[in-house]
Simulated assay, not measured.
Amino acid sequence: MARVLVVGSDIQGEHALLQRLRTAAALPAEIVRSCRDLDDCDLLVIKDTPALRNAAMRMVRERPRIQFWIEDQHGTLRHGQGDGQAVLDDDAIEQALRQMPGAPAPIEEPIAARAAKAITRALREHLQARQGHAVLALDGLPVLLLDFEQDQMVVPDGSGNAELAQLLSDDFERLALHGIAAKRYQQLAGELPRQPLRPLLWLWGQHPAHWHDLDARLQRHARVRLLRWPDFRVLGHQHDSFRLCSLLLKRACSVDECAALLEISGEAVRTFVHPAYLCGYAALEPAAERARPPLPAGDGGGLLARMWRSVRQRGGG
C-alpha cells in the first residue's frame, strides 16, 4: 500500500496526481490512495515552491521512512532529497510505489540489545559468527533488517546509506536490536532489494558520536588487531586505510604506534578503527606491558654480585 500526502495542490490537482501514479504503477485506487496525516503516509509530494520545499525537508528529516517527491510547474516529478534530484519516469514511479511497505508493524520479538554499547557488542558477535537475523528498530518500528548469514541488509523505507547512517548515529542510544527467525526476516523484507551490509556499517562507524568507551581504551594504549581484510568497497581509494590494514594484520599496535610507524595522525588512525571495530573487522587487545627497569644494585652490588664474591672467596680468589 502507498499512502500519498499531496501538499500545495487543490483537490482536482491532487486527484489528477494520484490517478497518474496509479496508472504509472498499474495499481488500483485502494493500493495508491490519499493520506491526510503526515505520520501515516508513505510518500509526500509537494508543489515546487521554496517555502514548501524547506518545510518538507524539515518534516522528512524528522520522519526518515517517508519518501519525498517534488512536482514542478511542468508536472515533472523528482526526488526531493539527494544531490541529483533525478526525474521520476513511469518506470521509476512504478518501482518506488510497488516497494512501499505501507505502515510497518511494530516489532514484537524480544529486545536482544538496546543503546549504543550493547548494540555494538551484539553486532560484532553476530558479524563474526555469521549467524542469525535481526531488526534494528527505533521506537518499536523497523529501521534496518539484518541478515548476518548472507552479510546483507534490507532498508524498509528505501533510504540511502548516507542518510541512514546519519539517522543510526543520531539515534544510536534510542535504537533496539531484536533477534528474529529467518522466516520472519523474509516476511518483513518481502520483495525489497537486498544490499551489502558492511558499507552501511562502515559509514555508520565513521560518525564520531558514541565512541567514548572505545576511545578511552585506545587512550590507555589498547592495541588494535585486524582480524581480516575489510570489504574493499568500504576502503575505496583511502591510501592510509590500506597501509593500516597491512600493518594491523601483521601485528597489534596502539594508536600511537600506528601513527609513529606510518607517519599519520592519531585522529586518522581512530577514524579507521571506529568503523573497523563496529564491522567486526578489528579487535582490541590489552596494552603491551612495558619493560620493567632493572632493580638498583645497592651497596652490595646485588644478589648476583654477592654470590660471585662468595664463590671467589671460597676458591681463594
Rank of each mutant, 00 (worst) to 15 (best):
L88Y: 11
R58F: 05
E257A: 01
P104H: 14
A259C: 00
F232H: 15
H74K: 15
C279V: 06
D89F: 14
V143E: 11
F148W: 05
Q219E: 03
H15T: 15
I70M: 10
R65P: 07
I264C: 14
V87M: 11
G80Q: 00
D256T: 15
D231H: 00
T49F: 02
R63N: 05
A276E: 04
H126Q: 01
R121D: 08
S310M: 15
P64C: 07
W229P: 00
A252E: 12
A252W: 12
A282M: 04
P208N: 05
I11V: 15
V269T: 04
L21W: 00
C35A: 12
G102Y: 00
V155C: 12
Q238D: 15
A297N: 12
H207I: 04
G280T: 00
I264S: 13
L175T: 08
S169H: 12
H133N: 13
L144E: 04
E257V: 10
R309V: 02
P101E: 09
A118N: 11
G316F: 04
T120W: 06
F242W: 15
L175V: 11
Y277Q: 11
E289A: 13
M307R: 15
A96L: 07
Q128M: 12
E14A: 02
A181R: 01
L177D: 06
S241L: 06
R98D: 10
G190K: 02
C245S: 06
T76K: 10
L138Q: 07
P50S: 01
R63G: 03
A2S: 08
G280C: 09
